[in-house]
């Protein structure tokens, strides 16, 4: 758990001007220690000021700034959320065909006393962790592991919770050889007919097919500063504008923020984040995610199997804007 991290070191580029205020807090702390005076009130005032400024900054983030928050290395990962939201998590490994893909974690757990299956992409907080998890970019065996365990949930008649945080499925040679496209496609087809409640939450990056490959919930929720897109802003800029430096424009044009996607009704709800983003308060972020999962799970948990399939089918069947 990376909770007490260095706040100054972990300021996002667009809030770097808060550095002085954080330094002030440090100075006050030192001073109060040295002089043995109580400066709690002064510190609290500075904190309040930081929070107010942050609130203001975060209320006006550009889409590309939201991307920076969504990708931030200190952002809570799937395993962070699992440890804060669920109890008795038992991780299950392997696709039974090729290997165990560390970029996707999956297992059984309890959510407020009820048995569920939870799966999600796993990134990391350090370069070492990120490398071990292939930066959260799954290979086909990751999608096949997810499918194996989701199908098990269906047989056991238990709800599925998926947490989405990937820049995309891994575009590697082996991934192609082993059928990356087929693995994702099959997941989509199978998820569509699952007879159990299924909730998906975009916690960080919802990168294209690699995200969708485990995200076909009856309800799809997004964290306030997460993104969900068909292609990264950089990719979009380099392909369509033939210039990767035009990513800010691409981010804006592609409509990738939670607010945009709620408007298009691609998602069902936005989950509020703590002031300054989820990485500033894992507990609060996780509590918000948990409350949202429980709310939506309760809404659909008395649906029959058939109703659940129909509910999900209609949700995706109705997506699309065209003229005739």
């Amino acid at each position: 758990m990376k909770q007490n991290f260095d706040e100054i070191k972990n300021l996002l580029p667009f809030e770097s001007h808060l550095k002085d205020l954080f330094k002030k807090i440090e100075e006050l702390k030192k001073l109060s220690e040295k002089e043995e005076v109580n400066l709690e009130e002064e510190i609290r005032m500075v904190r309040k000021r930081i929070d107010a400024m942050r609130q203001d900054i975060f209320s006006k983030l550009t889409p590309l700034q939201v991307v920076q928050v969504a990708r931030f290395i200190m952002r809570p990962t799937t395993l962070d959320y699992i440890s804060l939201i669920f109890e008795d998590f038992i991780e299950l490994h392997g696709d039974r065909n090729f290997s165990d893909d560390a970029a996707i974690v999956a297992g059984i757990a309890k959510l407020d006393g009820r048995s569920v299956v939870v799966i999600g992409h796993q990134k990391g907080h350090t370069t070492k962790e990120l490398i071990a998890r292939n930066f959260g970019m799954a290979n086909p065996e990751g999608y096949r592991k997810a499918l194996r365990i989701m199908r098990m949930a269906v047989r056991a008649n238990k709800p599925i919770i998926s947490l989405i945080d990937t820049s995309g499925a891994y575009p590697g040679l082996g991934a192609e050889e082993r059928g990356q496209a087929e693995a994702i496609a099959k997941n989509l087809r199978e998820m569509a007919v699952f007879t159990v409640p299924f909730i998906s939450i975009i916690t960080g990056e919802g990168g294209s097919g690699g995200a969708l490959g485990i995200a076909m919930g009856n309800r799809v929720l997004m964290m306030e500063y997460s993104i969900y897109s068909v292609i990264s802003p950089e990719g979009c800029a380099s392909i369509l504008f033939r210039d990767a430096t035009r990513a800010p424009e691409a981010a804006k044009a592609s409509k990738i923020t939670a607010k945009d996607l709620l408007e298009f009704r691609v998602i069902d709800e936005i989950i509020k984040e703590p002031v300054g983003g989820a990485h500033n308060n894992y507990k609060e972020a996780a509590a918000n995610v948990k409350a949202a999962i429980l709310k939506h799970l309760n809404e659909i948990s008395n649906f029959s199997s058939r109703e659940l399939v129909a509910d999900r089918y209609n949700k995706y069947r109705n997506m699309g804007i065209f003229v005739e």
Binding site: F264, G320, I321
Partner: peptide, 20 residues
């Protein structure tokens, strides 16, 4: 790409139809 997320959602939609 010109249809943003809606084009991604088509993958879900067509696959769901094939599930049926």
């Amino acid at each position: 790409m010109q249809e943003g997320i809606m084009s991604l959602m088509q993958m879900a939609k067509v696959s769901a139809a094939l599930g049926r």
